[in-house]
Design a protein around this nucleic acid. Structure first.
Lengths: 223, 223
DNA sequence: CAAATAGTGTCTTTTAGACACTATTCG
DNA sequence: CGAATAGTGTCTAAAAGACACTATTTG
């Protein structure tokens, strides 16, 4: 490998390097529930921003980046290890770079968002829990900021497409889709406008929902 | 400092760590010109993704993160060193984490956007140049992607506010503001709609522009 | 049948686009 | 004065909101 030197004649490897970690806001919507996030117990010795460890604190799952590993793979690894979650697509949100953030040294943390359909989220309840984002409380090390940014990103995504994160099982009715959007947005939506906005983006299966009160709704298969 | 150990009983400092760099899309609008970006010569030995150095290649300015330094400070340092630019506010765009990106080793690069008013951009022409983004050509190491994302971010910001990056000198007329918006958006905007959207967000100084052809326009002072 | 929900039609309000007309300056 | 630009009013078209009415199911 070629060695480049900078203006002070130092090779690349002569520079001190930060540890790099990932912290992830895992968002989901339980059936009939609110927009929720996955939290893990702080102080387990894995992840960033562990702090002095009160023992009862919760935090977003995270881990250190391994050599040559992609950030997205580190996110998936941390979730697999802690929550048995698989098949996801993490997105970067922001890099937290305050040198004093972590008392173990110089650690950069790349915050991520990962949206997980409820059925894919099987957690070890001794290590993790899923709580409505409104009830997350105060999290250490700026994790509330990550959560806020994650929710904002999710809302932006759902404002533009019917179900970009695949939170709904197919097929679904317009009512189910609207309920999901209201849960994500955190506010009620108008039936007429929602219909007008969504119907052109959906493909009807030709089937009808059965077993419900009222006129059976048409089923859609997503995009 | 307390030492935490992970599940393999390795202390934090035992992990291999990546070098971290910043690469910045510096955008500006020259008077009467197009939306433009700052490029520097590749192969100077500073920054990431230098490659084998053809000698004629151009790239976005970048540098390695120094110990304990904030990413934004590294961006400002790299711009100060290379272009005499000061007084800016870099924003993170994305972390490039392909382990094979840089032939000098494992380097993460945090892409940034920095929007600079033309008068603040005094460059050393032997090291750097400012070219319309449309004429940037093929840049190495995904820098075109950074540029695209930077332009998209800038457009989003200007769709929401009159002059979020302070590209216009105060006071300004509505026509000047519209011209700026058209330059940023890359397409003509309608006079009526633009007026309706912007006027409520502006504060008139009470003064009028002088020395121009036509009825003198009211001057505004921004937010 | 009553209650509940789906689907459709239509009216109103709001917003965006188009355009016309007046006002004021420079050359 | 004529060309150029600013500012305002108004007409029209499109989009969003509101609401009524019909259709079809469960209990």
């Amino acid at each position: 490998m070629e060695i480049y030197r900078d203006s002070h004649d130092r090779a690349l490897t002569d520079y001190p390097r930060p540890s790099v970690a990932v912290d992830t806001a895992v968002l989901t919507v339980p059936p009939g529930g609110e927009l929720s996030a996955l939290l893990v117990r702080a102080g387990a010795g894995v992840g960033t921003g562990t702090g002095t460890g009160t023992g009862t604190a919760w935090r977003l799952p995270g881990t250190f980046l391994h050599e040559g590993e992609l950030l997205a793979d580190a996110v998936l690894r941390s979730l697999r290890t802690k929550a048995g979650v698989s098949g996801l697509s993490p997105r970067q949100l922001h890099v937290f770079d305050d040198p004093a953030r972590d008392n173990r040294g110089w650690v950069l943390s790349v915050a991520h968002l990962d949206v997980v359909p409820w059925p894919s989220l099987t957690i070890d309840e001794s290590l993790a829990k899923v709580v409505p984002v409104a009830d997350a409380g105060a999290l250490p090390y700026g994790h509330n900021d990550i959560l806020d940014q994650a929710v904002a990103t999710l809302r932006t995504r759902y404002a533009a497409a019917p179900d970009p994160a695949g939170l709904l099982e197919h097929p679904f009715t317009l009512r189910q889709l609207q309920h999901l959007h209201e849960t994500v947005a955190g506010e009620p939506l108008m039936r007429d406008s929602f219909r007008r906005a969504m119907e052109p983006q959906l493909a009807a299966t030709g089937e009808l929902a059965a077993g419900t009160v009222g006129k059976p709704a048409r089923l859609f298969s997503g995009a």
